[in-house]
Design a protein around this nucleic acid. Structure first.
Length: 276
DNA sequence: TTAAATTCCTGTAAGC
DNA sequence: TGCTTACAGGAATTTA
């Protein structure tokens, strides 16, 4: 990182813009991983760490929120509106983060430091094997979501199952789209009380989550709003969605119109016939 | 313990 | 046509 620039206060959650710019300038971006919806960029050890010989792991953490984008641009190109962070890299390109709704966030620090600052939430297990840049990168990382653990989470809760799936502290990484898609694939009503779902449906839901996410990854994302990948390209999974955004349209399985309700404050689309 | 409501934010679409 | 209003949602926070 040759030079760093932070705009909008609020998107940078930790530390201060001055500290951020000072701490990241001159550092190398070593590896990229993620946990849930958080992207984790591992930095080389800080130069001033000497003495202890205990090189502290530091991370650049990015969450895109609803409308966040991370991409590369020529430094000469004027930054588009809602650009909140720019890193000029030694390769001559600029890494930029934009987010017009500002639900996204950027953090910099060691896992311990970020946890102490309350900037890293505790996340549940991963429904898809996570690319961890380093096992130490996320304090309390709980590994992959087995069917056994998934069942335990469901059996213990009286909440609507979709509310549970949306809870990042229970399971990491599922947002509104993929909860609806997973429930449809499993034939589970999103409003169903989690603990009342039987073993067969739990298994189907566990599989449905994996399938819904696998589709999205294969098709490079769901560009229902303005999601773009790192190359500025739209994903294609929005065309493969089975229920999300399809209220009133025929169910892919039975042909009856899909219904809409609200669960945990989120618009929820389901098939009243196939998801009993 | 759970959950509903509120807050942040702006582009889009619907309604008048 | 042009204005206002509702809506979209991730997650922290507040209230119930």
């Amino acid at each position: 990182v040759r030079r760093a620039w932070v705009g909008t206060p609020g998107v940078l959650r930790y530390p201060t813009p001055e500290q951020f710019e000072a701490r990241i300038t001159g550092r190398r971006l070593l590896r990229v991983g993620r946990h849930g919806k958080f992207m984790l960029v591992e930095l080389d050890p800080p130069r001033a760490a000497g003495g202890e010989g205990d090189a502290q792991l530091e991370l650049l953490v990015v969450h895109l929120g609803m409308t966040g984008r991370l991409g590369l641009a020529e430094p000469e190109a004027p930054p588009p509106r809602h650009t909140h962070m720019r890193l000029l890299l030694s390769s001559g390109v600029e890494l930029r983060m934009q987010d017009y709704r500002r639900f996204g966030r950027v953090l910099l620090g060691s896992p311990a430091e970020l946890s102490a600052a309350g900037a890293l939430p505790r996340l549940g297990p991963e429904p898809v094997t996570a690319a961890q840049p380093n096992p130490e990168s996320w304090r309390g990382f709980r590994g992959d979501l087995s069917l056994r653990e998934f069942s335990r989470i469901l059996r213990r809760s009286r909440r609507p199952v979709k509310a549970l799936l949306l809870d990042q502290g229970k399971i990491a990484g599922l947002g509104n789209i993929y909860c609806d898609e997973a429930c449809f694939r499993a034939g589970v009503r999103p409003t169903a009380v989690a603990a009342t779902i039987g073993p067969a449906r739990r298994r189907r839901l566990h599989e449905g989550i994996a399938a819904a996410l696998a589709s999205a990854v294969d098709l490079r994302g769901s560009s229902v709003d303005d999601y773009r990948d790192g190359f500025g390209e739209k994903g294609r999974n929005q065309h493969a969605l089975l229920v999300y955004g399809r209220t009133g349209q025929p169910c892919a399985r039975c042909g009856r119109p899909l219904a809409k309700t609200v669960v945990a404050g989120r618009t929820t689309v389901f098939c009243p016939r196939c998801q009993r």
